[in-house]
Design a protein around this nucleic acid. Structure first.
Lengths: 220, 220, 220, 220
DNA sequence: TATGAATGAGCCTTCATTCAT
DNA sequence: CATGAATGAAGGCTCATTCAT
């Protein structure tokens, strides 16, 4: 792998409804397996088996393992995007009350809770992105969009008086997204020693207008 | 790999001075290669080749690739530990003036700058730790020590009046270390869109007693 | 195959006596299999099996199927060279009586008779040489040497008064070697319709000084 | 391939005009690809692609790759036959002046020059014929016809007094056709070291009545 | 202590072929 | 007639590991 000898000749295959379904099945299978075994332990045979198709079918749809991996990024983007949708700038147009930063952190947390694989897969892909240009390109979009979303939240919070007015929205967003990613990493290493709720509460307090009392948690 | 067919029978070999040197050479070679190719692309043959020994020699010293990987964690711990030493709790006993949080962030940053491989290797191992118990166990120590170090810093900063007094030191430390790890990840994906200095400055401002004006940076 | 992704990293492996033997075994196995199944049907697994070693051993010694194929050319060169040795320019230095052209043709014929695979393998490689530069380079040497040998024969024959004096030795040699190769091809297609003895006798007669009577053969 | 699991059930399909055209397109595509990539590199998908049809269509018309290959022989026979037509026995009935042997060689040469693929394909099929009975059977006809044609030429030349009277027409024809085939092989290996014109001139001289002076060519 | 040689298990990919539409 | 989708059976190659020396 790694050095794609032949640019994926396939990928075009998804004309029919059924073809699209097969593609989704394969991507979903790959997604789950990445979470379970890591990219290091990902085998095309296993993907095909879990999707209930022959391994040749996988190549028929994606051509190459590398190509499938790139497609996975988009797949995850969709998954992840849907989770964060309510916070997206687009949703802000409605009369819906702006979501607080705290709520965003909570929802991000819940999202990872509900989709236990998401965090792992995201990290795996992040790492791969550092070495593989194709993955990187595809992955940047996710990050940009995510950062922009949080930036928007911060701006709203500040305007609404919920957050300190001296915040640099862009930098704050970068800090927050970084924190979330790092938190996932630490949780993976030592779930018992890291209380997401508690820590995210602390962060919220840093940014809040009225500095409430520090929460007394059992661990942090 | 993964399922070690035969528990590492070796590992005992490091009695002599020369043996210890060979071990170090191999570990250093592995360390560099992990940074360059990732765990996914790590090959025992390459490690041996870079260390200038036969591949059998590698197995003589480490028995198994898995065993070598565990040893790598300790190796990295040492490396990383030395970098952070001045900030370590142990160093606090001296009369040395307490380091500011800002300084810590800056130094962490510089440390990654000086050792460009460190961040990558740390991430790779973090990810592996999530799946491999042996790695996890070995890796937890690093994180715990690191978190404790930062916690100590926060406590000092608060006591010295440089940081807000209402901080939860433990949670703050967890947040900060998480941020640093996440920042490394984001930097790997899109170095151009992430200004570590600027963002860490923002964080520093959140925790500082006197909320200075937000820095006007080009990007964040 | 075809486009060697990685230039054969191996090939160096033949230091010891035993290693050289393994190499020879593998080449001999490949040689036989090419004759039996053709290059089209040549499988590395079969080669290894016939040589009585694991397929990995084959790659240990040759690195690539392509590399092995190039090595085969040299192997065949040796085989073929030994057969033609008496006619070689080098052998002419001795007091040995010069070999007649007829004798050369006869011996070439007997050589192919004794080594039934030789002709087939030679043809397969000739064909491959037209497309693969590596094979071509290695194969040109054989042809050049062969042509030179026959040219020498013609010159000697003319000088000795056995062959017509107006021959262009170089052109005659080219014609003769071409004839032999083409004859092998025709024999492969329709052995019953091609009597090598008879035809080569005819050619000999064309070049001879005293035009003897045409041989009355059963078929030609 | 090789061992056809299911005897070609198709092949019957060519009733309509359009069907015949499709067949021709596919054969022509296969013919070109054999010349370009060799039988070893011939892929049914490539053939279909070059013919502008789906790969299933190929199987609809020929059933099997093997069957298509047999059909190719006939296709080539036609092609080759048309080129040699003026020299064919059939054409001899007319009052057309008999073609000289030299002219035949020249024309054969020009034919290969004009149809650069022909020689290659012929050789590929010759080789295949040695192993595959079906191909062999189909291919023998071509050779027989060709040999008979040349034999006819020789006979005419002798009768007309242009060629030596002591020739064995059958053997001479076999020698000449063998030479041509071998020459094609050598040309493929080392075009720079083989001057067809010069060499065929030499042969012509051997057979001619009046032994002219050997041509002084640059190379042979 | 160190290594050259050898291997078993497995990986990604290819390709001729089939079948429902 | 023609095709898109799917597959079984390899095929070349890799890699961690072993073992005699």
């Amino acid at each position: 792998m790694a050095k794609t000898r032949r640019a994926a000749a396939a990928g075009k295959a998804s004309t029919s409804e059924l073809g699209a379904a097969r593609r989704r099945d394969l991507l979903e299978a790959a997604y789950t397996l990445i979470a379970e075994k890591g990219l290091e332990g990902l085998r095309t045979r296993d993907i095909a088996a879990r999707a209930g198709v022959n391994i040749s079918t996988l190549h028929y749809y994606f051509g190459t393992k590398d190509a499938l991996l790139v497609a996975i990024v988009e797949h995850v983007t969709d998954k992840f995007g849907k989770e964060r949708q309510p916070a997206g700038p687009g949703a802000a147009g409605a009369a819906a009350p702006p979501e607080s930063l705290r709520a965003h952190l909570e929802r991000a947390w819940r999202s990872f809770q509900d989709h236990p694989h998401l965090a792992t897969v995201l990290q795996e892909l992040s790492l791969r992105a550092q070495r593989d240009p194709a993955t990187r390109t595809a992955f940047r979009a996710v990050h940009k969009e995510w950062n922009r979303g949080v930036e928007h939240l911060v701006r709203q919070g500040a305007r609404a008086g919920q957050l300190r007015s001296d915040l640099d929205p862009r930098a704050a967003a970068a800090a927050i997204t970084s924190f979330i990613m790092g938190a996932m990493l630490q949780l993976g290493i030592d779930a018992g020693a890291f209380d997401f709720h508690h820590v995210s509460g602390e962060i919220d307090r840093w940014l809040a207008t009225a500095p409430g009392k520090p929460a007394r948690g059992r661990k942090a």
